[in-house]
Amino acid sequence: MINTKLKQASIYLMISLLLGASLVSNHTNAAMVGTDSYLAAAQTEYDREALLTLIQTDDIKQQLERYGVSAADAEQRVNAMTHSELLAFNDALQSGPAGEGLLGTLLVVFVVFVITDMLCATDLFSFVNCINK
């Protein structure tokens, strides 16, 4: 008698556990990944790597140090840039004249750093106040 009640209780326990597990489980939806979204993500990573490579050159490092920005801080900011910020930076970089790129590049990098300071993404310059506080 006790053995039958124990079997019956364990059956009810197993049923309730299986039912509970099926109700709690997460459902996932698969969707197609569009080519344009994949290419945009790949282009963003390519642009980021190109900019990081540019920052590693000796000329750019020296100019950044003149402005008081370390190469590590510059890399951190580039890694924090959004897709639209990278596009704007690359457009400014590509539209500049071929021989005058260094000063213009540094100016664009400086402006991007000031903007990221204003948006509270970083805190590099003490003279820039955060607007999101």
Rank of each mutant, 00 (worst) to 15 (best):
M1Y: 12
N3S: 09
N3Y: 08
N3W: 08
T4L: 11
T4P: 08
K5Q: 07
K5N: 08
K7H: 08
A9R: 14
L13T: 08
S16H: 09
L17C: 05
L18A: 11
L19K: 06
L19E: 10
H27D: 14
A30G: 05
A31G: 11
V33P: 08
T35V: 06
Q43K: 09
T44F: 06
E49T: 13
E49K: 08
Q56K: 15
T57M: 03
D58R: 14
I60N: 04
A71S: 12
A72W: 09
A72E: 15
A74G: 00
N79K: 13
M81Q: 03
T82P: 00
T82K: 02
L86C: 03
L87H: 10
A88E: 14
F89H: 01
F89W: 02
D91P: 01
L93P: 08
Q94R: 13
G101C: 06
G101F: 12
L102I: 14
L102N: 07
L102E: 06
G104W: 12
T105H: 00
V108G: 05
V109K: 04
V109A: 11
F110L: 09
F113L: 14
D117A: 02
D117W: 03
T122F: 01
V128I: 15
V128K: 00
C130E: 03
C130S: 01
K133C: 13
